[in-house]
Amino acid sequence: MHVVELRFECFDNTTITAAEQAINGLLEAYRANGQVLGREFAVAFNDGEFRVRLLMPEKSSLAKRYNSPWVEHALGKLTEAKLLHPREKYIGQDINSEVTSTETPSWQLIYTSYVHMCSPLRNGDTLQPIPLYQIPATFNGDHKRIIKWQTEWQACDELQMAAATKAEFAALEELTSSGSDLFRRGWDLRGRVEYLTHIPTYYYLYRVGGESLASEQQRPCPRCGNQDWLLDEPLLDMFHFRCDDCRIVSNISWDHL
């Protein structure tokens, strides 16, 4: 991942409110298209210009060729707010984040966790994140639905990791059940991505609990009942099960590994 600073200069008299709405609208449009990562952006005003530092999948993430219609619309709103289009200043590579995938995968998967800010679309050969703007828009011109699903998955993951309230059990149900709303939406998004990219795309179904290692190894695919989805060797040292019919990968319960 890479860090860049955007600088917005005024070309005429404006107000903080107008500038705030225009800049935040652009940042949200970038986020919905996967061009910038994270949820909160600190916008500072100093010496007559607005500045914000952003985390991006690639150095070229803000290139015009990747812009969604909503990004282009938001850029137009900057002019209405008397702001020039932003100037970019490259800061450097972020040492605390993952390296973006640059090769076409033989398969890919939808996978995230509460500690990841990167794209939830992963290269199945390396597990490296694939920038969402590198694939066709999934719905309505961008990838807002995938970003929203990722936010919900991460919220449930954080609740179950904290294990401090009864909400943990409801969150676990969403993460681990093939009948949950979270699974249904994510699995449908997976299918949409596969249709658009023509690359086999899988959904990661999180697994904890279970009675024993032996019972875990014998559990069938929760969607179709396939008894032969246990792999001889785990994929990427993480996924012990794969059902090619249902496009699901999963793990042996972390409680028994």
Rank of each mutant, 00 (worst) to 15 (best):
L127V: 10
R87C: 05
F45D: 09
S68C: 08
I110H: 00
F45P: 07
L132D: 04
W70K: 12
D125F: 00
S101V: 02
E40D: 13
L37I: 14
A74L: 10
D125Y: 01
E58I: 04
Y111R: 11
T100Y: 05
I135T: 07
Q134D: 12
T104Y: 13
L78H: 00
R65N: 09
P105H: 14
N33W: 06
P120L: 06
V71D: 10
L109M: 10
D94S: 11
E40T: 11
G34N: 02
E88S: 05
G76K: 10
Q35S: 08
H73A: 08
V71N: 07
D47S: 09
P69L: 15
T79R: 14
L78R: 00
R53K: 13
V52Y: 03
S106R: 12
K59C: 09
W70H: 09
G92F: 02
Y133S: 00
G48Q: 00
I91P: 00
R53G: 10
L132N: 01
H116W: 14
Y114F: 10
P131V: 01
Y111Q: 11
N46M: 03
F45T: 12
P69N: 13
Y66W: 15
R87F: 06
K77F: 13
P86A: 03
L83C: 04
I135R: 01
N96L: 11
R31C: 11
N123M: 00
A137R: 05
L127F: 13
I110R: 01
